[in-house]
């Protein structure tokens, strides 16, 4: 049907063709749409030029964030498999790392029945306190006794009574994304050092790191009540509430895109126009490193980007590539300098 529309307009509207090109670039063009483009391409050298230019912008702008999702990890995996096939068997050396890995698997297998036994024993007898801690560089995914799901971010801790006997109550230090199952008669409570949240059934993100100056809650779905010792607010979806530990005040913000606050749970580290000083604590938790700034100006450099499965080594090459900063690694420390400072 797109063809008919375009023929009627005799493609006089440049934007119509461009929309088709966008659909093609996004991998969403239909068979008919592709035909229309191939006809249009043959019409003039100008069209070909326009097409080549737009494709160039499209491809290049997506490289840094790997927006087109080229599967690097799979390619490396296949490459490794192929080259190890071709290596003569005699030369293969088993490294200590491999030995350690196998040992870990065996240990895990051995420990499973034991922990299973202890676990069962525990929950049957007492309502004990369970604490799940997530180290720097790690993330975890927990299903609570009421089948609510919690994604726990790096450097966070969640504790709760193992069988929710005294109600649905959890305590959080750090950041977590909650998907709370609906239960009108049993409100779900999340306590942090500064605020408490009460919900019936919702999805929300709560960030309450001890080392940060504020606590922030972002609501994706449903309704929540958030209270501090001084104030109480009800939140609607697509709102973010920030509690300042200094002024003890809560401010409500409207957010166009809640995924900015929740992307971390899908393994995406997203930053938009953030200074290195703002990024420092997040990078430190995410990669489990210490970041040191070599000079003052470098702290104010702003960056936009997405990191997904990258290691810290890859991440710093992205920052390096900006030509504003220079990163180096010493042990567990990442040192960031202004490039012109050197």
């Amino acid at each position: 049907m797109c063809i008919i529309q375009l023929k009627n307009a005799e493609m006089e509207n440049e934007t119509d063709v461009n929309i088709l090109l966008i659909r093609l670039f996004s991998g969403e063009a239909s068979h008919e749409e592709k035909k229309v483009i191939s006809v249009w391409l043959k019409q003039s050298a100008e069209n070909k030029k326009l097409y080549a230019d737009l494709r160039e912008i499209w491809l290049t702008s997506g490289i840094q964030s790997n927006a087109d999702e080229y599967n690097l990890e799979q390619a490396i995996f296949r490459f490794k498999a192929k080259i190890s096939d071709q290596r003569p068997a005699g030369i293969q050396i088993i490294s200590w790392r491999q030995v350690a890995r196998y040992a870990a698997v065996i240990l895990l297998a051995l420990s499973l029945p034991l922990s299973y036994y202890f676990g069962k024993h525990n929950s049957a007898s007492t309502n004990s306190l369970t604490t799940i801690a997530c180290a720097y560089g790690d993330k975890s995914n927990i299903v609570l006794p009421d089948s609510s799901r919690v994604y726990l971010n790096s450097g966070s801790k969640l504790s709760f009574n193992s069988n929710f006997e005294n109600g649905r109550k959890v305590k959080l230090e750090g950041e977590a994304f909650f998907e709370v199952t609906k239960d009108k008669n049993h409100p779900f409570h999340v306590k942090t050092n500064d605020v408490e949240i009460e919900v019936l059934g919702t999805k929300f993100n709560l960030k309450a790191y001890a080392e940060e100056k504020s606590v922030s809650a972002t609501l994706v779905e449903g309704r929540i009540k958030i209270s501090s010792d001084y104030q109480q607010e009800f939140m609607a979806p697509d709102q973010r509430i920030i509690f300042s530990k200094e002024s003890k005040k809560m401010t409500v913000q409207k957010v166009a895109d809640t995924t900015v606050d929740t992307d971390w749970k899908d393994g995406r580290f997203v930053f938009r126009n953030e200074s290195l000083a703002e990024l420092k604590p997040r990078l430190e938790r995410w990669f489990d490193v210490d970041i040191v700034f070599g000079d003052e100006q470098v702290k104010n450099r702003r960056f936009t980007g997405v990191l997904s499965r990258e290691s810290i080594l890859e991440a710093i090459t992205y920052f390096d590539r900006s030509n504003y900063v220079e990163c180096s690694i010493q042990g567990n420390k990442v040192i960031i300098n202004s490039q012109n400072n050197k």
Binding site: I19, I22, R23, L54
Partner: peptide, 22 residues
Amino acid sequence: EMHLAKATLTLRKNLKDYLPSF
């Protein structure tokens, strides 16, 4: 799609010095 189409067209204009070998 319309926003993206307009955006790429404007980018083409503003980045023309580097095209076609961007």
